[in-house]
């Protein structure tokens, strides 16, 4: 059976998702994802389009609340969950000079 998604495509999608895969994992995922994507053929072939009312059906008056000033969470309590902190900042590896 020809795969719906190739190993190269899986590796590309993994890279976009910031995931590393071993060659064996890429092969297994390509096989499994192909089965799932094949199942989607039933909607792929539908002659359907979405009208704007449906596209935005979840954007309504619920999204709005009064613009009041309130206390935010304490900075310390948020930083407490971080893997690496320096003073009041999240510490990360260098960004400049990345050869990606």
């Amino acid at each position: 059976m020809s795969e719906k998604i190739s190993i190269d495509e899986v590796l590309h999608v993994a890279a976009l998702s910031r995931l590393r895969l071993t060659p064996t994992e890429a092969e297994v995922f390509a096989r499994q994802l192909s089965v799932v994507i094949s199942h989607m053929a039933d909607i792929e072939s539908l002659d359907l389009s979405l009208d704007d009312e449906e596209r935005y059906s979840y954007v309504d008056e619920r999204a709005l609340r009064d613009d009041d000033t309130k206390d935010s969470m304490k900075r310390e309590s948020i930083l407490r969950g971080a893997p690496l902190v320096e003073e009041y900042m999240f510490r990360v590896p260098p960004i400049l000079g990345e050869g990606v």
Binding site: S17, R18, L19, R20, I78, G81, A82, P83, L84, F90, V92, P93, P94, I95, G97, E98, G99, V100
Partner: peptide, 23 residues
Amino acid sequence: DGVRFGLRKDGSSLTDMFFSTRT
């Protein structure tokens, strides 16, 4: 992504850390 909460796996760069942490 290993920055604000939970697991962090070190990497040589920020992107490398994202990959290691998520993988």
